[in-house]
Design a protein around this nucleic acid. Sequence first.
DNA 1: ATAATGTACAACCAAATGGTTGTACATGAA
DNA 2: TTCATGTACAACCATTTGGTTGTACATTAT
Lengths: 108, 108
Amino acid sequence: MFHALATSVRRDILRRTIEREQSVSTLASEYEMSFAAVQKHVSVLEAANLIVKRAEGRERLVRANPEMIARARALLARYEELWRARIARLDDLLAAPAAQHPTPKQGD
Amino acid sequence: MFHALATSVRRDILRRTIEREQSVSTLASEYEMSFAAVQKHVSVLEAANLIVKRAEGRERLVRANPEMIARARALLARYEELWRARIARLDDLLAAPAAQHPTPKQGD
DNA sequence: ATAATGTACAACCAAATGGTTGTACATGAA
DNA sequence: TTCATGTACAACCATTTGGTTGTACATTAT
């Protein structure tokens, strides 16, 4: 999944197929590599469910699957949430430095 | 960057170092692989700026760099934004199907 | 029918990846 | 000092990756 996003060519294919559905050969014409190479990139994205292919005549039309993009983003958002939780914990410690003392009654 | 996030061991290291700063050997003790292997994973994360190392005595303490996590998340959020923009465009087309016709006067 | 286009897939190759072991060195503990 | 711990790094290996070319086949165009 993140592996599928790990090369710029694949992220570019993803971007293009978000904008509009395109055939594999149309995509291939955009890059300076063989059709077969682009075909492989497309199938990596497909295996990760980041794109979907459908047949139309002899063409295979590729479109992005925004659901999986959202999943990846959500995972990273969870990490940021962990970070915020950690900061909150640290803040708590700083706010109550005498918490381990046995019931400091009141004032203090 | 996404490549650094592409293996579960590295994502796990990232998660642990978000929770709290840890030495490389502490991290290594969590996985069933050699210390050197974990060391390599750590250096991949470091090269991607997803973590930061600092020396303390003979130990190297590792902590997550939330800034880069945010960058990755933001990139994916941009993709989702592209998707929303595309949907909006399609909606516009559907909302004004006769736009190219020369002023359909009224009723119709 | 024939040619051109779009795709699939296999075989091959160089380079990168993810792991290992071994060696060296700095620091902390006995 | 001597020993144990934590790290760095090199060398090596199997597998994966990212690219190539070549062949085959379905669909469209002439």
